[in-house]
Design a protein around this nucleic acid. Structure first.
Lengths: 193, 193
DNA sequence: AATGTAGGCCAACGCGTGTTGACTTTCCAG
DNA sequence: CTGGAAAGTCAACACGCGTTGGCCTACATT
């Protein structure tokens, strides 16, 4: 029922439009945030009717939620010398933000988390599941908890000012300038004093 | 015309409700951002009708704009020893954010700037008019431009994670812990290397 | 007391939204 | 061929929004 004898290559047609919807939704949510993104606009971008979005994702909140599946792909910090951890982090985030211009995932999350409870909750989850463990691997156990927050604050501050607010004083910097200016700072937060 | 013989003590009545509207608007914009704040709700909070808000402020965008008159009250960094500038900055911002809980100004600006072009533009102005000059007074001239952005990124990162996103790893820190963890970091960004 | 004006309320408008359900088209299995 | 499900369209709904204009009320000046 519902599907034929063999559905090994999953129903094809619907999967393609479902993916198109998700792609369009990510773009809109990233550019405009949750409230200003309309289902009609997403549907139009995906080349279908708005009611199809409802059929596949239930409602706007669930579509949004599907959009928030994000992997920071944090590197394993275990092998890295203690005094190079900050540099590795900064480099990784710059690459993550700027590497693939079509990848709006981080933009969606950060922009929405500021005005949307659902996204903020997701941010907490991602923090607990990805950032904390990664830093715990590179820091003395009891220091990690107290410093992970400040390190995140600094990295998110970079994302905020460079990619969301686009403050000229930050956007005009080259990746190298950012790395050389920010890595020592974060390193100072990481090192016990 | 319009006003009587002498209006020395400004028309009284209207000024009080105008102030009440502004207060309510700041609270709503701070808590919910621009889009989710409704004029009807602001009016209700101020104890008057929605059409009064229009009478006094023209439209929603202008009300919002009136809300965005913000003075960071940055201290004069000229007299401060070079190695204490970061500490002074961190302390000042903590005080500014947490000193007067009824003062939502920074919250309004930061929350809205992420999804609203108008607020983002205001952020750029404030940055150019207040942050840049203050740092220029404490840094070697040509270094200032390249470092002011990163310092702002770090300070805004703190505001973002602690007061908007309320990441547990940041909200659980005491002001002292933040100061001792973040001041050396920002100092590292300020110091030429 | 008369009156003009500022402050305020009420009802309605036009619009865009999320969401729904009935209808049509495509397409593949029997 | 032919059914029937999947994929997609269309028109409409109920709602809340920003905004408007007409009306009432208080009150200070004459």
């Amino acid at each position: 029922m519902t599907q034929g004898t063999k559905t090994s290559t999953t129903d094809r047609r619907s999967d393609r439009t479902k993916a198109a919807i998700l792609r369009a939704a990510r773009e809109r949510f990233a550019a405009q945030g949750y409230e200003r993104t309309t289902i009609r606009a997403v549907a139009s971008d995906a080349g279908i009717d708005a009611s199809m979005v409802m059929r596949y994702f239930g409602n706007k909140a669930q579509l949004f939620d599907a959009t928030l599946a994000i992997d920071l792909r944090l590197p394993d910090l275990t092998g890295i010398p203690a005094d190079e951890v900050a540099e590795a982090l900064v480099r990784h985030f710059l690459e993550r933000w700027e590497g693939d211009p079509a990848d709006d995932a981080l933009l969606v999350l950060l922009r929405s988390a500021v005005t949307n409870e659902q996204a903020a909750a997701r941010m907490h989850e991602i923090f607990a599941a990805q950032v904390n463990p990664a830093l715990a691997a590179a820091l003395p156990p009891e220091l990690a908890a107290r410093r992970a927050g400040l390190v995140s604050a600094q990295l998110l501050g970079l994302g905020l000012t460079r990619y969301l607010l686009r403050l000229p004083a930050v956007t005009t910097l080259t990746p190298d300038e950012i790395e050389s200016g920010l890595a020592p700072a974060i390193q100072a937060t990481l090192d016990p004093n």
